[in-house]
Design a protein around this nucleic acid. Structure first.
Lengths: 212, 212
DNA sequence: ACAGTTGTTGGCACCATCTGCCAACAACCG
DNA sequence: CGGTTGTTGGCAGATGGTGCCAACAACTGT
């Protein structure tokens, strides 16, 4: 008997849209990442980030329950891009071929200047332990999403072991190649950097199949 | 010109052996894990753990720079066991066959009662975000060790992309099957639980090869 | 036995992280 | 305009975590 969309005519201030929340988080995230890379994570206080972003410390902590989660809004972009491509994977095409064709990391989901930011955050996670932990947690959330897609494609529940192993392995391969491309892009991002990434992930998956 | 083992005759109190440090950490770890599972991580203060382990809060923080790292001494056991088996992998044998033959998780590295503890910690990481993050970081360190082994076997540096992808994927497959066996062992550990794990990881790797 | 040297421990002060609570305010309604 | 609901910021307070220092423990040579 719980109504779904049949609500009372609404009274009082409406809650802000999820989209606006997302943008606000993203804005804070950019400031935080800049500070993190300039002076290190440990040396950057929550107060400092809040001030840079123009909000009170209290609302900053409301947006990001932990300091390190500041990087999530930017980091999700690289993972979401991959999930989107996998979701669009036609059944009749080989996965490697589909990736090589359709996977242009970030180019769709992120603006040009954000690509720089995202890659620099990935690089940051390689030296800052706290950020790395946040990154790995994020990737595991994405692993679940991947399992959903793969499971549906294989006609099995996403909780199936077989499905989970595939999702985890694909995610791991993506992680390694993403780390690599971020390292390679340290001195400025070129189009061929990203194309290198596409090739990277394709060959990574191919290598995988020869392992056993 | 830096002497390696040719030191001055040593004066003053000798530093405690690494082995003793390890045991002390392990002891504290057991107390911490018990408290964590009894009342949750957030509700367990560092002071409480220190008191339970019979050390001052100050030395507790010296042993574990962050509260969550309390689980490392126990969690490494499950990862180390796998690394040891991979290290002992003869060149002429198929990896899957070797694992099915030689991999008896924990049975060698951990005492019987510790097996319970280790598996319960793995289960804990599935509900406690902070512990999960620590677990993932730990696994990534093990990934490096794995890459060393695989790299040497393939005649390439451990930093080689191909090597890293394989290490990451194997590690991921192990992660999923370890999570699964921990879940399955929720109601008491039996021998077949662990043998199930062995079979789990073997089939997991086989599945992997059919993905592409 | 004693002084000199080095490593470990615990206590204290201190800053940073993060939370609960509440008053102020903003955005909608009739 | 008053009523209602959601968001913000300030403040107090507990916990996490570090630097510093004095006390002590374990060794060496005389």
């Amino acid at each position: 008997m719980t109504d779904v969309a049949t609500e009372k005519p609404r009274r009082g201030r409406p809650p802000v849209s999820d989209e606006q929340r997302r943008l606000q988080r993203l804005d804070i995230s950019r400031h935080a990442v800049r500070l993190f890379s300039e002076q290190g994570v440990a040396a950057t206080s929550g107060e400092q980030i809040a001030q840079a972003a123009g909000v009170s410390e209290r609302t900053f902590w409301r947006h990001f329950p932990q300091k390190e989660s500041c990087v999530e809004p930017l980091l999700t972009k690289v993972v979401d891009a991959f999930c989107a491509v996998v979701r669009a994977w036609p059944r009749e095409v080989e996965l490697i071929d589909h990736l090589r064709e359709a996977y242009s990391p970030l180019e769709d989901t992120a603006s040009d200047e954000d690509i720089d930011a995202v890659l620099s955050v990935v690089r940051l996670t390689q030296s800052e332990r706290a950020l790395r932990a946040a990154y790995l947690m994020l990737r595991e959330r994405a692993e679940d999403a991947l399992a959903e897609v793969l499971g549906e494609r294989m006609g099995r529940p996403a909780s199936d072991i077989n499905v989970r192993v595939r999702a985890a392995s694909m995610s791991a391969a993506l992680k390694v190649s993403t780390d690599e491309v971020a390292r390679a892009a340290a001195g400025g991002v070129t189009t061929e950097t990203l194309e290198g990434h596409r090739e990277q992930i394709a060959t990574a998956l191919r290598d995988l199949s020869q392992m056993l």
